[in-house]
Design a protein around this nucleic acid. Structure first.
Length: 232
DNA sequence: GCGACAG
DNA sequence: ATCTTGTCGC
C-alpha cells in the first residue's frame, strides 16, 4: 500500500525556502494519539561518507521487538547539513528506503527531534506528515530548549522547554546514562511517545530499532566503501 | 555582535 | 554525521 501523498514532499529547495515550507508544518502536526495499539515499529537511520548517504530501516514487531524485515538504499545527499533543516537533507533518502519496505510500519522512531524544533517542524514531524504515519522524535542531543537533568533511574523524565512551552522531555532510557530527548513526531502524544520509547528500550540508551538501524547502516557504509576501493 | 546549533 | 587510542569506571 503506497503512502499518502503530501504537498510538503519537496526537498530540493534553497534554505530560505525550506524554512518557509517548515512554517506550514506545525498546523498539520497531530500531537494527540491517533494510532491504535502498534503491532510494528520501525527504526530509521542514515550514515554518510562524503556526499553519499546510506539509509536503513528495520521493522520490528511490537511489543516483542522481533525483527520482521530490513531494507536499505544509498544515494547522493543534495542538501547540506544546516541546524534546523535536517529533514531536507535526510528525508529524501529515508523515503526511498521506506518505499522498499514490504509492510507499512504502525509507528516510526526517528533519530532526530520532532516538535522540539525552532519552528516545531523537526524531521520526525515532517517525516510523519509526508508518510502519513505515526512518528516519534528521539534525539541524542538538544537542538533547542532547556532542561534539568532527570533522576538517574531508567524511566525518569524532565521537561524540555522552549521558554514556557514544553516541547519534549529528557528521558532516561537506561539507569545512570545520559538521557535521550523525546518529542512528538506525528499522531502520538508526548506521554505516549515516552511510553513507547521506553517500550522499545532494552537496556541500552538508544531504543533497539534505532540502535540496530544505526549499527547496520554503518556496517553497510563501510563494506560498500571497501567494495569501491577494491574495484578501482 | 556573540553563542548555539538534531545528524 | 565522521575522524580516532587509550582509558576511566561499573
Amino acid at each position: 500500500m503506497p503512502y499518502k501523498a503530501s504537498s510538503l514532499a519537496r526537498f530540493d529547495l534553497p534554505p530560505s525556502e525550506a524554512r518557509r515550507l517548515q512554517e506550514q508544518i506545525p498546523p498539520l502536526v497531530v500531537r494527540r494519539n491517533q494510532l491504535g495499539k502498534p503491532q510494528t515499529v520501525a527504526g530509521a537511520d542514515i550514515s554518510l561518507e562524503e556526499k553519499t548517504g546510506y539509509a536503513a530501516v528495520i521493522l520490528y514487531s511490537f511489543p516483542e521487538l522481533t525483527e520482521i524485515e530490513r531494507v536499505w538504499c544509498s544515494g547522493q545527499l543534495r542538501f547540506p547539513y544546516v541546524p534546523g533543516l535536517l529533514a531536507f537533507r535526510e528525508i529524501p533518502l529515508l523515503l526511498e528506503a521506506f518505499a522498499k519496505l514490504r509492510r507499512r510500519p504502525d509507528l516510526i522512531l526517528a533519530d532526530a527531534h520532532g516538535w522540539a524544533h525552532p519552528r516545531r517542524a523537526g524531521l520526525a514531524c515532517h517525516l510523519g506528515i509526508v508518510l502519513d504515519t505515526p512518528t516519534i522524535g528521539c534525539a541524542k542531543s538538544v537542538l533547542i530548549g532547556k532542561y534539568e537533568m532527570p533522576a538517574a533511574r531508567s524511566g525518569s523524565t524532565s521537561p524540555l522547554r522552549d521558554g514556557t512551552e514544553k516541547i519534549g522531555v529528557a528521558l532516561r532510557t537506561r539507569t545512570g546514562v545520559r538521557p535521550v530527548f523525546v518529542s512528538c513526531g506525528h499522531r502520538v502524544s508526548l506521554p505516549t511517545a515516552v511510553r513507547l520509547t521506553l517500550a522499545c528500550s532494552d537496556g541500552y540508551r538508544i531504543p533497539k530499532p534505532l540502535r540496530e538501524a544505526d549499527r547496520w547502516v554503518k556496517q553497510i557504509r563501510i563494506s560498500r566503501g571497501v567494495e569501491k576501493i577494491q574495484t578501482l
